[in-house]
Design a protein around this nucleic acid. Structure first.
Length: 805
DNA sequence: AGCACGCCGACT
DNA sequence: GTCGGCGTGCTC
């Protein structure tokens, strides 16, 4: 008797363990770990993943697997193992880990419907139901639930045994197919047969001749109809005569289909690149795992090192994963990989539709490609012979997933690197302190690229003290210097990139008389003014309302906008430099699919003078005519309640500065700030990572933050503040009592955003160095509150938080 | 999670 | 007496 251990697709802590099922006789040869199955579970049917096959069980009466959904495993042995590790590591359910590894298209959809039972008595059945059932044979459960009279009838008939509830598990996957016609006889036969055709069959004759002329075996039906401008009736005739056959052929939706990628060849490496790539090539050759930090200033040619390392991997018949921050943001990156490796590259990013992602995933699964370029989740690409994993811009926070499983792609990459005995390369000009610290300890091997390509120096950076500007009577958002330089670039026909980390029009609305700030009713956060729509929006819950014309608190008319958003800057430039053509890029202008790329292409082609945008323009852009980069307010991030805020500011300023003067023309950077003396601003302007690292490490040590301590963050939320406080108190004291006295438990404290969507939020932060039982205690907490969590209580645990809010 | 089962109050 | 409310416990 074969028994399958199945992880069920049900989100419940009690069910987060394997369940045993009997393998039906006819499936014994096919079934294996990693395939999806449908199993009966109580009264319903659910999807599950077979994780193991065994012979024994402790369960008395086993049920049988209903159906298998895959013939080939969808998760291989490695990924099944990785899932277990990931669940333990991040404290999530195993099913969440497996689902994170697969495209959403493969997630199950559950439906219920009403059907007649085999033993039903039609004469006995209520006539209303009979009518509904005779036309469709089934009634959708949701339809029934909506109508109370029918619902009642159905319940009655279920009791009488005439109808029953059927549980369906549907696949979201939509394989796109098209019909292809295939020639069934040899050309000689066809030629003979054509002669026997009557005159009316002219179109049929034409079709066959088309096949013969073009020397085709098969041809898509729709294209054939179009090209010969015929309907499907002649085709039907041919199919009937067994001369043609119609088949469904699966096609891939290729989002890059229309694009041509210019074939590129390896570039000669500089001496520095050469010595950086050597150790990587060596570990590829020796099939030895090693993590590398490729520490290279912006424009130092990291990508070429990636490309040539991958080439070596491919030569050995192995596969490569390249992670990039958010790939739709950097079409230039895709271009470089497709250009070098052509059709053997799959691209996975958030801009693709569900179907497109599924198609790309299947190309990987079937080994039709051997390079994957993608965002965070591409780290799970189902390759079975990995030769290298590369994480570009290693410091980017988008590598951390902010929902279950709360994993960091870097950790998964290193796990897989060990499993496959292959190198992992982390590339950055501004590595996270964690990563750089590990490289100085020798955990990662440090590879340095200190020079920019083409002997370009780093751009000159000017820091402007905006307080000084204000004192001199300049109340505009542009300092004198920045404005002059923008004007100068406009005259010379060169381009400017302006950077601001705020979308919308202004940050908040405040009454000048009473100081009242317009907040979201459901979240404790100020609403942001959006001018085009004349609305204020909450950037946390999406709530929006009309702009108040009177202060809701004191009825004063002196209610004004404060702070600066992208829209407002755009308007201001319009006034100051009416001739300037501006492209604005933020979440509002790039929400539509592909709009991002369009805007960037337009800017790249010189159809605008100024690119104005938020965070998203800081990454990987590389335009030859950009000679000026302006940062409007460098310190907005500095005051966030996050111990990484200095690091993030430094990274951002350094990255943004790197956008200028990457080609022939020299670049300049202007950073406007209210805190010019801050070390993040000072050191970023001097491009001095090492000094920043030293300074920040000193502070982290004093304040007991990573990389000196590990962090875990427990966030508790509930509609009632008393409940939140009492639960957080209990959790904090439980941890304090159980952890060693070296651990630091901070809490209960209100979250930096104390209320979102009418739920109060408290948190407890744990700083620790070595607490082998921490995960165990946290699991205990979760199961202790399991009942409450089925109601209104929410507890989230992040074992390596990046968002402290 | 999602469902059945069971126990208690209030209605034809 | 039965309908329907929610608390409890189980699902291979």
């Amino acid at each position: 008797m074969k028994i399958a251990k199945v992880i069920l697709d049900v989100q419940a802590i009690q069910l987060d363990r394997p369940f045993d099922y009997l393998v039906p006789e006819e499936l014994v040869d096919i079934i294996q770990p990693g395939i999806r199955v449908i199993v009966p579970f109580g009264p319903r049917s659910v999807q599950g993943f077979v994780i193991d096959i065994g012979e024994n069980t402790d369960i008395k009466k086993l049920k049988q697997i209903t159906k298998i959904l895959d013939v080939e495993p969808i998760l291989n042995k490695e990924l099944l193992e990785l899932g277990t590790w990931l669940s333990n590591q991040t404290l999530c359910m195993q099913i969440s880990s497996y689902q994170a590894m697969l495209p959403v298209a493969l997630k199950a959809k559950y439906e219920k419907e009403i059907v007649l039972t085999e033993s039903c008595n039609l004469d006995d059945l209520h006539s209303n139901l009979k009518g509904l059932l005779s036309s469709k044979h089934t009634i959708n459960w949701t339809e029934v639930e909506e109508k109370p009279e029918i619902f009642k009838l159905v319940k009655q008939e279920i009791q009488r045994g005439n109808v029953e509830v059927q549980y369906l598990v549907k696949n979201r996957a939509n394989k796109k197919t098209h019909k292809v016609l295939t020639l069934e006889k040899s050309v000689e036969d066809i030629l003979q047969i054509i002669n026997t055709f009557p005159q009316q069959a002219a179109k049929q004759k034409e079709v066959l001749e088309f096949f013969i002329e073009k020397n085709l075996d098969s041809y898509p039906r729709l294209s054939l109809m179009q090209e010969l401008s015929i309907t499907d009736s002649p085709l039907k005739g041919l199919i009937k005569k067994n001369l043609l056959k119609e088949r469904e052929v699966e096609i891939y939706r290729d989002p890059h289909a229309q694009k041509r990628f210019k074939k590129t060849t390896p570039l000669p490496l500089t001496v520095e690149q050469q010595s950086a790539i050597m150790p990587i090539l060596q570990s590829i050759e020796e099939s030895k795992h090693q993590s590398y930090l490729l520490f290279g200033v912006t424009g130092s040619g990291k990508t070429e090192v990636y490309l040539q390392s991958i080439e070596e991997v491919l030569k050995r018949g192995k596969q490569a994963i390249v992670l990039v921050p958010e790939i739709s943001l950097t079409p230039q990156m895709v271009e470089r990989f497709k250009g070098r490796f052509g059709s053997s590259v799959a691209v996975l990013h958030s801009g693709l539709s569900v179907g497109e992602k599924y198609d790309e995933w299947r190309k990987i699964h079937r080994k039709e490609v051997n390079v994957v370029v993608g965002a965070r989740s591409a780290v799970f690409a189902p390759f079975d012979n990995l030769g290298i994993i590369i994480i570009d811009e290693e410091h980017e926070t988008s590598y951390k997933q902010e929902e279950n499983p709360r994993y960091h792609a870097r950790d998964v990459a290193i796990w897989r690197g060990k499993y496959h005995q292959c190198p992992v390369v982390l590339g950055s000009a501004t590595p996270t302190l964690e990563t750089f610290a590990r490289s100085s300890k020798g955990v990662y091997q440090l590879l340095t690229l200190s020079k920019r390509m083409h002997d370009k120096g780093m751009p000159d950076v000017e820091i402007i003290d905006m307080r000084e500007e204000l004192r001199e009577g300049n109340r505009s958002m542009f300092s004198k210097l920045l404005f002059e330089k923008m004007q100068d670039r406009l005259e010379k026909g060169e381009q400017t990139v302006l950077f601001l980390n705020r979308r919308g029009y202004s940050t908040f609305i405040m009454c000048r008389d009473c100081g009242f700030v317009v907040n979201c009713h459901e979240c404790d956060i100020s609403l942001t003014y959006h001018r085009n729509e004349q609305k204020v929006k909450c950037h946390y819950c999406g709530h929006e309302e009309k702009v108040p014309s009177l202060c809701p608190s004191c009825n004063s008319e002196h209610i004004r906008f404060f702070g600066t958003g992208t829209q407002k800057v755009e308007e201001e430039i319009g006034k100051l430099l009416p001739n300037a053509r501006i492209i604005r890029m933020d979440v509002d202008t790039t929400s539509r699919k592909g709009s991002h790329e369009k805007l960037l292409t337009a800017f790249g082609e010189g159809r605008a003078d100024i690119l104005l945008g938020t965070q998203m323009i800081a990454k990987g852009l590389d335009f030859p005519k950009v000679t000026l980069v302006g940062v409007l307010t460098a310190d907005t991030m500095l005051h966030l309640p996050d111990f990484r805020s200095s690091e993030k500011t430094f990274q951002l300023l350094t990255q943004v500065s790197g956008r200028a003067g990457r080609h022939e023309l020299p670049g300049e950077v202007v950073i406007q700030t209210y805190t010019p003396e801050h070390y993040s601003v000072q050191l970023a302007s001097g491009h001095d990572y090492m000094q920043f690292y030293q300074t920040e490490m000193g502070l982290r040590k004093i304040h007991q933050y990573p990389p000196f301590y590990f962090l875990a963050l427990v966030t508790i939320s509930h509609p009632e503040i008393t409940k939140v406080v009492s639960v957080t108190e209990k959790i904090s004291s439980y941890l304090l009592n159980h952890l060693s006295n070296k651990a630091i438990v901070l809490g209960p404290v209100a979250s930096p955003i104390p209320r979102i969507k009418n739920r109060y939020r408290y948190q407890c932060m744990i700083k620790y160095k070595d607490e082998p039982l921490l995960r165990h205690y946290l699991k205990e907490i979760m199961s202790h509150y399991q009942k409450d969590m089925q109601q209104e209580l929410q507890i989230t645990i992040d074992m390596n938080p990046y968002m402290m809010m």
